[in-house]
Simulated scan of single mutants.
Amino acid sequence: MATHLITGAGSGIGAAVARRLHERGDDLLLLARDAARAKEIAAGLPGARTVVGDLANPDRLSWALSHQSLPDRLDSVLHVAGVVDLGAVADISVKTWRAQLDVNLLAPAELTRLVLPQLRISKGQVIFVNSGSGLNASPGWSAYAASKFGLKALADALRGEEKPNGVRVSTVYPGRTDSPMQEKVHQQEGKDYDGSRLIDPESVATAILTVLDLPRDASIDDMTVRPGQ
């Protein structure tokens, strides 16, 4: 039975992935920002364990995890959590830049560093859920795209570093997906929100599980998921 550490399991893509893994009997370790949120996201996943650590404070993750019990081995860490706040370079504040860099880039880097010993034991896998903005930056998306371009660089470097240890590293780049984050984006863009016109989180979850379940004789380094219409 595989054990997976998942961030962002409370909604959207992360919730869909957690539900699918839970349904097939895998062990889940769900990262939440505080105890109340941990209880909330685990409520619908009986048997799932939680660990508390605030991705908005990556410099505190080491301290937080050192005071909690982690499994001796992990088969995967799935980085799904993310934040977005649009704005032109002329207007966006350092605080807004830093908030997105912390959650979208520095926290995944630090969390990966902290659990690499467990991943090496199992010759496991790191999957980063990136974004189309991690490949192309549009006006108004500078801070978010920069954090996601950085996440791509992190994945590419980590892949080469950990290949001798048998750890696979993959990135999935979803297009616009029906989720609370995308609702916020539409509000900031001044657009009406219609989730039916976006990718279903279940479709992205299927892509992630395809990457995760690929036999060990192969790897998918990068996968792009786009709307079908």
Rank of each mutant, 00 (worst) to 15 (best):
D75C: 04
G190Y: 07
Q100S: 05
A56E: 09
G53S: 08
V126P: 00
A207T: 06
S147Q: 02
K123F: 01
P180F: 06
G53D: 08
R33I: 11
A15N: 10
G134E: 04
A42D: 02
L101F: 09
A81Y: 11
A81D: 12
W63G: 07
Y144E: 03
L5C: 10
A218F: 01
G190M: 06
R197G: 06
R176S: 12
N136M: 05
T7N: 05
I13V: 15
R159M: 06
E110V: 15
D91I: 03
G87Q: 04
G10Q: 08
V126Y: 11
V89N: 02
V80A: 13
N57T: 14
K148F: 02
N104S: 06
E110Q: 15
M223L: 15
N104K: 03
L154Y: 05
Q187H: 02
S93Q: 12
I92H: 13
G150W: 03
T171S: 15
G140H: 05
A88F: 09
L212Y: 12
A207L: 05
A157G: 15
G47Q: 05
P180K: 04
A88Y: 11
S170H: 09
P215T: 00
Q68D: 02
N165I: 00
P117Y: 09
E183K: 13
L86S: 09
L198C: 06
R60D: 14
S170C: 13
L70K: 01
D59M: 05
G87S: 11
N165Y: 14
K163M: 04
R197I: 01
P174E: 08
A43W: 04
H22V: 00
S69V: 07
L158F: 07
I220S: 03
R73P: 00
L28N: 08
M1K: 08
N104W: 05
W63H: 14
D26Y: 07
Q118W: 05
A207Y: 06
Q182C: 01
K191R: 15
L119C: 11
D194S: 12
D59S: 14
D59C: 01
Q100K: 05
S138A: 12
P174V: 10
E110C: 08
A18C: 11
L114M: 11
A38V: 09
A16T: 12
Q188F: 03
K148S: 03
S147C: 03
R168G: 02
S147P: 05
T177A: 07
K184S: 06
A207D: 08
I127L: 15
V83S: 12
P108M: 12
A146S: 15
S122E: 07
A32P: 13
T210A: 14
G228N: 00
E23Y: 00
V52F: 07
W141Y: 13
A218G: 01
V204K: 06
G190A: 06
A155H: 05
Q68S: 02
G140N: 07
L61Q: 10
S62F: 00
L151F: 04
S131I: 03
V129G: 07
F128Y: 15
R33M: 12
T96S: 15
A137C: 14
V129P: 00
L111F: 12
N130T: 04
A205K: 09
V169I: 14
L209D: 09
